[in-house]
Nucleic acid binder design. Structure first.
Lengths: 270, 270
DNA sequence: CGCTGTCTTGAGTCGGATCAAGATTAGTGG
DNA sequence: CCACTAATCTTGATCCGACTCAAGACAGCG
């Protein structure tokens, strides 16, 4: 690992010039999506914002497929995704894989950062991305000093927990098309909430059909057919890694999607 | 709701005399399973233990099927299960139900107690049980005052989170028999860890086949056949609400069960 | 002793998996 | 800028695990 004088831990990985894979969505609210995110959970003071900004100021670029951390290997750093999309997953013997969640810009990769044990899942970038790292010790220190930040992080973990419950419900009880619809609704809602959707309502969609299969617990072929059905039904458009939900209401009806679980009650912001 | 002079919130519900449904497992470590549980996450001082014991000293008895709290209805109390087993679940239109987790003696029902929003799931007793209630405000106060307790509660939430991830993996990637095996291994491990298994290694098993179906996302008939297969294979015995795993190693192999995710690393106890 | 909830078993059907091959698109190097 | 290669996406055909429907067997409880 290379070490630069002013800022350690910066590993400059060659960034592809193609552009299609690049992920430079707008970051409206604040220059630092992590700060914006935390601020959304709990109103932060200028000082608190500054502390978080400083802690994640130094980020490194990585290319598609880069593993942020691997099942069983614990590092003393916690990753914060600044730009791009990553997925949390776990492998099974037989080559099967279950994707357990998606990490979006501003998200902390490891929400169980309190536990110092080995993580039971891996995290991998699905796009090129920027990743900042904070020492566990440093983060703990920050939390102890700034109560609001600790609170915001706990709310983030709670939200993640809620999403996981919905996924369980989704996979456990719904059929292919319903599952797919629910997932697309959720993903769109999350991306929009952090300002990652385009002006025309479409959004960059970096998840290929194989990953969708591992996300929804269905076969690649069935994923393809479910998507076809949704396209034919006029619910979505999906081409060139761009998703447009053409009938949001209809799609939500198919999925029985209720965004309630993604929204933090106002009371949290107090 | 009846109110007694010395201790409010005690609602004496008639307890069935049959006995089969009764759940009076041994509570080895400490007289209060909640304190024992928290102490397992983080070594508590005598004072901290006393505070938690006092807060949950007053518990009320409830019969099978009692709903501790219902989706969408927020109370200003947090429940702690002292005795019995409960399940967290969510309903879907069409009468479908997904069980999202089991609450065992010593567990807090609402791990997202920080969020003051409405819960997106319900909790129901599967046995007769004893339940203590703590005011949200009181709990918050305790956490602020006693750092270790807050830490223990967060670890409990992390563990719950880890279990949820395994369930997702289980339902998403494994077939009927594997799912069932994995669930039985997990349940047995959890129950044994809190001293709820019998001397001969068997354990009280209050989950009927219909609930297993809603837990594992499979049909009642298929649950029955999977259990038959495991019985025929000599892996388990299950009769009269008592489960005995006769071939623990074999069952774990079938399920690819690795209890690692249920164990908190020693570092946590420090 | 009869009612009701739970478990068991059989038979038929279907959603979704698997297998296989071709069409497209993106990425790479000459 | 084009050719080559590797992903990714499509589509058809076949098969099986799991669901549904249906009926009978227990067992616990009032």
């Amino acid at each position: 690992m290379l070490t630069k004088p002013t800022c350690h831990n910066v590993e400059q990985v060659p960034v592809h010039t193609g552009g299609a894979q690049a992920w430079s969505g707008p970051c409206a609210l604040v220059d630092n999506p992590f700060v914006a995110r935390m601020n959304g959970f709990r109103r932060l003071t200028d000082e608190e914002g500054a502390v978080l900004r400083a802690a994640t100021h130094c980020a490194s670029n990585h290319s598609v497929g880069h593993t942020l951390f691997f099942e069983g290997y614990r590092s003393d750093h916690v990753c914060v995704l600044i730009e791009g999309v990553a997925c949390r997953y776990q492998l099974l013997p037989g080559g099967r894989r279950q994707i357990l969640g998606y990490v979006l810009p501003g998200d902390l990769c490891d929400l169980d950062f309190l536990l110092s044990g080995k993580p039971s899942y891996s995290i991998e970038l699905m796009t090129t991305g920027r990743v900042a790292q904070i020492t566990r010790a440093k983060l703990r220190e920050i939390i102890e000093r700034y109560v609001s930040i600790g609170h915001a992080l706990r709310l983030a973990a709670s939200l993640d927990h809620a999403i996981l419950r919905q996924w369980l419900l989704n996979i456990g009880q719904r059929d292919g098309i319903e599952r797919m619809s629910h997932f697309l609704c959720e993903f769109e809602t999350r991306m929009t909430a952090i300002g990652q959707s385009n002006a025309d309502g479409s959004l960059p969609f970096c998840i290929n059909q194989s990953a969708l299969a591992d996300t929804l617990g269905m076969s690649l072929v069935h994923v393809n057919r479910s998507l076809q059905a949704l396209r034919r039904g006029g619910f979505i458009q999906l081409q060139k890694r761009t998703l447009t939900i053409t009938d949001r209401r209809g799609l939500a009806d198919v999925a029985d999607f209720d965004p309630h679980y993604l929204q933090l009650p106002d009371a949290c912001l107090a």
